[in-house]
Design a protein around this nucleic acid. Sequence first.
DNA 1: TTTGGAACTTACTTATTAGTAAGTATATTT
DNA 2: AAATATACTTACTAATAAGTAAGTTCCAAA
Lengths: 184, 184
Amino acid sequence: MSVTREKIIELGENLIRSKGYNAFSYQDISTELGIKNAAVHYYFPTKENLGTSIVKTNIQRFEEMVENMHSHGFNERQQLDTFVKIYLKSHREQKLCIIGSLASDFNTLNETTRTELKRMTEIILKWLTDILVTGKEKKLFVFDEEPQSKAFIILSGMVASLQVSRMMDKMDYKNVCQTIISLK
Amino acid sequence: MSVTREKIIELGENLIRSKGYNAFSYQDISTELGIKNAAVHYYFPTKENLGTSIVKTNIQRFEEMVENMHSHGFNERQQLDTFVKIYLKSHREQKLCIIGSLASDFNTLNETTRTELKRMTEIILKWLTDILVTGKEKKLFVFDEEPQSKAFIILSGMVASLQVSRMMDKMDYKNVCQTIISLK
DNA sequence: TTTGGAACTTACTTATTAGTAAGTATATTT
DNA sequence: AAATATACTTACTAATAAGTAAGTTCCAAA
């Protein structure tokens, strides 16, 4: 695959996560890459195309991470910790996650991008739920709630704590993440 | 105060909460109100003015709600339930809360709107923390975490559950809220 | 050596945006 | 009755947005 194409996706993702979908333009990308506006359209004819590709890339990256954890024999706790680490990194970079950024602009997204975003959310929630169920069976986690609700709350907590923490100066973000998962 | 002015603020708030700050225009407002674009600028010269006024109005509304609860002798549990009800209503209306919507666009907001949004977040978090502390003293709530962390997690949970639930079809949102506060 | 395609640029168009300057109608005050 | 203020409209400007059509450069295959 083309290097420029990959750079556009990467830059687009970072722009969405820092400025938001409706605040970034093809000009932002082309200027940064030292190419012309039309060159971005060459790879992604419309902004919808780019948006959808960015979400698809994120899904792929997540699935690769999960596969990677399996092949390394990570247990459920280690897998959950790895997931939380993604958010710790986002917090350090002062960026939102792709779900949180696009969720706010959901009503302005086109159908295909929406569908992919929904799919991504469902994939993560399913993975989280599975991990919670198996981890509980293995007595790695202790909790009383429905695994599905618990998964939903962990994801919501991660997504919004990035958003809210951006508005708070002093914040023990790591501690907040620990409390959110709070699986003894 | 002018009726038109109030209508603009109300409409602007709803537009931010459904489309996002960078996706709505003065045209959206003027068309809906049957007035001209310039009439909106008459009341709010710049979009920054409008954004700031919308946040300020929300702060005022929140403070009035708190005063109202105090004068009605609501205990801490009743107060927390009232707070959660705001989010249940938002969920029914398929809208985000003002904090969640603007948090995503935070980096594109001007300084004054940012400051007001920060102030609003701090006011809510302080109120939540106080309620948790007092409610725990009165043995209305039982929890082990730091009240500040708990307050942060409750707010984050409410904010993001609106965002994430918008992407999920079937959802027991009320149950999720109950689990988030999960104060026995 | 030509042909074809990939990766662009040039040079636009059209639409929409925030914002403004100057004017008008109507009601209120002096 | 004249002056003033309120609440707009008319008619713009300048900037930026997404998107496109046609051309160019360069490399690799036939």
